[in-house]
Design a protein around this nucleic acid. Structure first.
Lengths: 254, 254
DNA sequence: CCAGCTTTAAATGTCAACAATATGGTTGTC
DNA sequence: GACAACCATATTGTTGACATTTAAAGCTGG
């Protein structure tokens, strides 16, 4: 009854018969980072991780380079790699890009989506609504439901590169940031209404409206997040929006 | 008198004292690909390239993984890497994303640009205008002038991630596509006027107008490109918009 | 002459060892 | 006691060799 959309970034066709070791480790590292098991800012120790995954440093280094490509790790020459740590400014930058890009996705989806596509979107929303009634309201946005919706929407745009960009990079970064700050969007009823309005606009073929509504939707989410951050930043006296503090947390997997 | 803006993607501070071998080769490969010396679709032979650059296969493989991160190469397990080859559909997808993102850049620039910034943009345009009068009209858009303008504009947005995304990935892909198709945008006088209008809107602080104008500007460029493609595709009878033709051109650096 | 299999070569994936660089602690001096 | 230079250790960068897989060439039989 869950019906979770694939979030891996690769199109899930077959189980990928022979994957290379670097590919395996890359995926494991990515999920570990996004889940927060490798904390933001923590150092990526090659010998240790190589031993942990039972592979040599060669494939591991290639996996790390691919992490850098997803912007999930930052590499400095002769100094190693660290899990990326987003400050508030960077998070805002990502939200700005996301707002623009998902607006585009809605505009495209409005022109390309078929009746069946819209019906499927509405079914997804209805399913989430049911899930909300059963469980807790706050679970809707906080957990995977919100991502499911945006995933399917971006897929409907028909722009594969847009899909890869949003679902393969930006969403991962936003998840990372949420785990990093421990903040939950939590404005479920409003988000739910906005989702419905967006689908209505797409079903009506009104691309401009769909784009506008999605932009507002994301702007609202961003502002909610910023308010949360401002509140949590008001409690500690110093050291809140600093630069890279070296050695934030050297050991991972607490 | 040229004043070409740095296009490398990295911020050009110092000559980067100790760069790693993989970094060097990565940059050389990237420029080779964008310049067309490594033709789109051509296979990337590890032993050959390693010998050519005088390094081992280890750093070379890391450089290739970073190329994959820039979307300039595609790697298939146990089959090696190939220089990416964009078909018309993919080019359209990139233009759609670029339109949305540069619209965002203009909107942001309108709110953040200072008077000096706008003056600098106008100086750049005036300089290009002079260059156009001296040389040939068609040189303006076709060569680096157009990129210069868009570079500075995106930089003015203040969104570093947006800058990296556009100037570090998408622009490279578009250059690659132009070399691939041999098409030149070539509508210089119109582009020049549109650039001026965009700067005016930014100077007036009108973000919405700047965004709208930039969107139109890019849409026009895209349509011009598509018309060119449609014309050139009408000449050959078969095999024009095909998929990957294996072994398009195995040898590079003709 | 072609189909299909075997063999062969080349390229990719992986590993372990070596070299160079940065980090951390120690020691010595002022 | 503080600062600087030095040494020791660990980590990163790089290399060459080995294993595995793919692709091609060659061969045999129909």
């Amino acid at each position: 009854m869950a019906e979770i959309v694939d979030i891996s970034g690769e199109s899930s066709a077959e189980p990928t018969k022979t994957q290379t070791l670097a590919d395996d480790v890359f995926e494991q590292l990515r999920t570990a980072i996004v889940k927060g098991e490798l904390p933001p800012g923590s150092k990526i120790n090659e010998p240790q991780l190589a031993a942990q995954y039972g592979i040599s440093r060669g494939p591991l280094r290639e996996a790390i380079r691919r992490l850098e490509g997803c912007k999930l790790a930052e590499i400095k020459a002769n100094a190693g790699a660290r899990v990326v740590s987003l400050n508030d400014t960077q998070a805002i930058e990502i939200y700005e890009i996301r707002e623009s890009l998902e607006g585009l996705a809605c505009r495209l989806a409005a022109t390309r989506a078929s009746g069946d596509d819209c019906a499927r979107l509405r079914a997804l929303l209805a399913q989430h609504e049911q899930q909300i009634r059963d469980e807790d309201w706050t679970q809707y946005v906080q957990k995977e439901g919100d991502w499911d919706f945006h995933y399917q929407l971006v897929e409907l745009s028909g722009n594969k590169r847009l899909f890869n960009l949003l679902c393969g990079e930006l969403y991962h970064l936003l998840r990372l940031f949420r785990h990093q700050t421990g903040s939950a969007p939590s404005r479920p009823e409003q988000a739910f209404r906005e989702h419905h309005a967006i689908v209505d606009a797409i079903a009506a073929g009104d691309g401009e409206l769909a784009e506008l509504l999605m932009r507002r939707h994301i702007t609202g989410a961003r502002n909610t997040l910023l308010d949360t951050l401002a509140d949590s930043a008001a409690v500690p006296s110093t050291d809140s929006a600093g630069e890279h503090d070296e050695d934030q947390s050297e050991n991972q997997i607490t």
